[in-house]
Design a protein around this nucleic acid. Structure first.
Lengths: 144, 144
DNA sequence: TCTTATTAAATTGTATACAATTTAATTTGA
DNA sequence: TCAAATTAAATTGTATACAATTTAATAAGA
């Protein structure tokens, strides 16, 4: 019977997760285009808006990304003038990424984005909180 | 105040979604490696296990993928011997993708994957159903 | 009919992702 | 002290994703 076919697409939990994540990133695009940022660049700027200066390893730990993804991305952000990339004098293995003034100004322009996205997702407070908790619970299990 | 900073990473709903989707796909890897499939190839095989024969457009509609992603992916699956790719004689614009016997046999080998993944996600029935419903609700809103 | 519009795949170009390896710097420990 | 181990980024290679364009086939309509 269909509902017992564990390999049916509609019986998967991971598939809607995969699709929703992908489609949401796509929804961001028109808003992020105005800031000349991709989604991954946007969340990278987010951690740098919180902590002005971080090395690649720390950024990667917060975003669940490795240097293979971050190195070219950070070079792009540097090229756009939003961050600087300088080796740590005390330990040359570390690359210190720092947000520039231009990068800080971007945050003001980004303020409306979460509101507009929330509008388009259109979940009520309870549902959002519920989803949020379930996702972090999952993330916790995935970490070990 | 932090909880009102809508641009803080920990106040985002999309970020954990993006990370969890990514990390789950990574969890699949060791299991899918045994079938010589990537995650995207796996869900493509899923729709072809359900309907033995589909064109690219239909596969794309079910998986939320376009021909730019599917064309090279389907060529890979053809190269591996899991599908055939033949133009529709009635309408040459359509490419008919059909699962082969070798591709059908893969389904048997895949049977244990959903069980093993469920074990690693470790959500109870209620939580899973809850998440499932929230994701499809979101997907519904994203579609318009 | 025959030009125009539409449609389905494929192609092109850019940006992720990540495994695996390499490079360079630093730390450890015999 | 100095070879071996560890660490942080960068690099390499493969596979998505998707916007935008192109190609080829079919449909529509004047």
């Amino acid at each position: 019977m269909d509902q017992f076919d564990t390999l049916k697409l509609s019986n998967q939990l991971c598939f809607p997760l995969y699709v929703v994540a992908k489609e949401i990133v796509r929804k961001y695009k028109p808003y992020l285009d105005k800031l000349d940022l991709t989604y991954t660049q946007y969340i990278t700027m987010m951690v740098l808006w919180e902590d002005k200066s971080l090395n690649v390893k720390e950024i990667g730990k917060r975003l669940y990304l490795d240097s293979g993804t971050l190195t070219p991305l950070l070079k792009q952000l540097e090229y756009k003038g939003y961050v600087t990339r300088v080796r740590n004098k005390q330990d040359e293995r570390n690359l210190i990424v720092e947000v520039t003034n231009k990068g800080l100004k971007l945050k003001d322009k980004a303020q409306t984005i979460p509101i507009q996205m929330a509008k388009c997702l259109n979940l009520d407070q309870q549902e959002s909180l519920n989803l949020y908790k379930l996702l972090y619970k999952l993330l916790d299990k995935l970490n070990d």
